[in-house]
Amino acid sequence: MRFGVVRFPGSNCENDCIDIITRILGLKTVLIDYREAAYLKGNIDCLIVPGGFSFGDYLRAGAIAKSTPIMESIKRFAELKGLIIGICNGFQILTEAGLLPGTLLHNSSGKFLCNDIKLKVVNNSTAFTNLYKENEIITMPIAHAEGNYFVSEAELLQLRVNNQIILEYVDDINGSTSNIAGVCNATKNVFGLMPHPERVCEEALGGTDGLRVFESIMERTKLLV
């Protein structure tokens, strides 16, 4: 299988994702420039929109990235049921683009926060979490200023009914509605999360709880083939 990793100016986790996928998982990746509108044809199984500060997060995190040429391709890719995972800034971009429900507001503390936090895997039947146990508590780092996930009461109900809530913070760390840390779209092929799974894929760097996100994707892709 092959991962595609999108790079916007100001992305800064694209190389980390590529490093984990190639070095730890031994898979192929292709780096895709935000100006390449017609790239996403066929040969990519999963697209990663990585973390960072796309366009400096000026205006609002993800607000400029959503209007770049690549976004039309990403939307088409999503419509064709391609798997997409948005991490941190990638999550912000996917909500801005309307591919995921909700909005990411400033942390309730008003500050950037980098910490290891505990998460609960709420839905373990998705393409991104099928190797975790249901309600498993895992540890991943966060590093964001705008991770306060907001949805209305009605939307929250909708998310619950459709099992779209994938990850929850065990404690309230940034003010998110219902402690939501990661959600997917209604068709469950687009996933966004604020924590960084790619940062916990090696014991030497403090843990391996993030590795199964990528392995779950491999597992699902294998089944599809």
Binding site: K111, L205, G206
Partner: peptide, 16 residues
Amino acid sequence: IYEQYDQQVQLNTISK
């Protein structure tokens, strides 16, 4: 102070 800094990007940080 240090929780406001990204301490891990680039995947090299063994001790934070």
